Computed example of a mutant assay.
Amino acid sequence: MNDNAEIAQQVRRWLEDVVIGLNLCPFAHQPNKLGRIRIAVTDAADEEALLEALQEEMSLLDASAEEDTETTLLAAPHLLDDFDDYNQFFDLVDIWLREFGWEGTYQVAGFHPDYRFAETAADDPGNLTNRSPWPLFHLIRESSIDRAVASYPDVDGIPARNIARVSALDGDERRRLFPYLFG
């Protein structure tokens, strides 16, 4: 198994090469450039421990100024390998956000090596927009989302543009950007 530093480096490379490099998230470049994206790796081996890790990360965000840490990517390399299990875990995350009073303050978005949008084939190129080297939980401040949406001219066009971008990648580009899918 990879150690946590190596896992964090793989997530950083994915963030910079895929998310920012392909401009899948036009809002990620600036916080990354300013060092405001925290990448954390949890050793959680069950869902309860993962919820505790998410709580710790959310508490860290609560305790930090947005100018210091705007968002967190939490990698969970030891569980939720199965995408259906990962996807169902988000039901617990939604409950957890409500229980801790973080609903409306934070959102949690998902990325997974086998990410699959509803009603798409497993090999649909559009799924690449959310495929990451490890199961990831993106903890996002609602205030960041509000500012980004207000300043971007075509937020609704982002998904279609992203699908077109990853669909246009040739086989060599896909193998270079998503090596974990071709292991």
Rank of each mutant, 00 (worst) to 15 (best):
N2E: 12
P159E: 04
A160E: 05
E48S: 10
S59I: 09
D154Y: 05
N162I: 06
G126I: 07
Q10S: 12
A53C: 11
S143I: 15
E67S: 15
D123H: 07
D68A: 14
L24Y: 01
D81C: 01
A122W: 01
I163Q: 06
A8Q: 09
D146F: 07
L60F: 11
T71G: 10
L61G: 06
D46M: 03
I39K: 01
R13K: 11
A121F: 03
S144G: 15
G126Y: 04
I7Y: 04
L61I: 08
A160K: 00
D123I: 03
T69D: 00
F83D: 00
V155C: 05
S167L: 00
E99Q: 14
D114T: 04
D154W: 04
E47W: 02
R131I: 03
G104N: 05
V149K: 03
T129S: 15
P31R: 05
Q88P: 00
P125H: 09
T71K: 11
W14G: 03
H29R: 15
N127Q: 06
R116K: 13
L92F: 01
D156N: 11
L128W: 03
D81A: 15
E16C: 06
E56I: 12
E67P: 01
D17K: 13
A40T: 08
G104K: 09
Y180T: 10
D124W: 12
G183S: 11
N162Y: 07
F137Q: 05
F27C: 05
L34A: 14
L128M: 13
Y106L: 14
A118S: 13
W134K: 07
N32C: 14
Q30C: 01
L136T: 08
R98C: 07
P179R: 05
V155W: 12
E103C: 00
L177S: 04
E67F: 02
A168V: 00
I20N: 01
L60I: 08
R141C: 02
A8S: 12
S143G: 10
S143T: 15
V155F: 13
L181F: 02
D81L: 09
W134Y: 15
P113S: 09
V108H: 01
Q9T: 00
K33A: 12
